[in-house]
Design a protein around this nucleic acid. Structure first.
Lengths: 79, 79
DNA sequence: CAGCCTATCATTAGAGC
DNA sequence: CGCTCTAATGATAGGCT
């Protein structure tokens, strides 16, 4: 099995891209969870799933929304 | 060299935790960039750096702020 | 199209400076 | 403290079902 080295560029093939998306989204969320748990880092992510309407949030809808709101509010205060 | 297997739990040792934080934050942002570029996925992250006051944003301050604001606004509209 | 498999490449814990 | 090195674990491309 010959495996191509990954280059950082848009994957033209839509089928491969979708498979890669599924795998990488999982890996990405795992990294987020590890950073959060192992290192006690508060973090939130917003992923606009290109195959569904609803965006995916980490750590969950409520926590991420709270963090985003708090962040935006702090920015407003600084103005 | 004997390496402990990583368990998904808070790292008690603060020096080790800080080193791990630096390494994992870098890895996490790399994964974010890969998911974004390879799969054409729009995503934003907010990482509250425990060692500094300013949170770190991906892909950058402006884009992430824009995505968060848009997301919050959409939530408000749905109410 | 979505899982499973596994060879292969990528990340990182631990060590040394 | 923060960098480099590398063994060892972890992620995933391509193949298959």
């Amino acid at each position: 099995m010959v495996r191509k080295k990954v280059k950082l560029a848009f994957m033209e093939n839509s089928a491969e891209r979708k498979v890669s998306y599924r795998k990488r989204r999982k890996g990405f969320l795992t990294k987020a969870r590890e950073l959060n748990t192992l290192c006690d880092v508060e973090l939130a992510t917003l992923v606009n799933n290109p195959y569904h309407n609803e965006p995916e949030l980490f750590p969950n809808h409520e926590a991420a929304t709270g963090m985003f709101t708090k962040f935006i509010d702090l920015l407003e205060e600084k103005k």
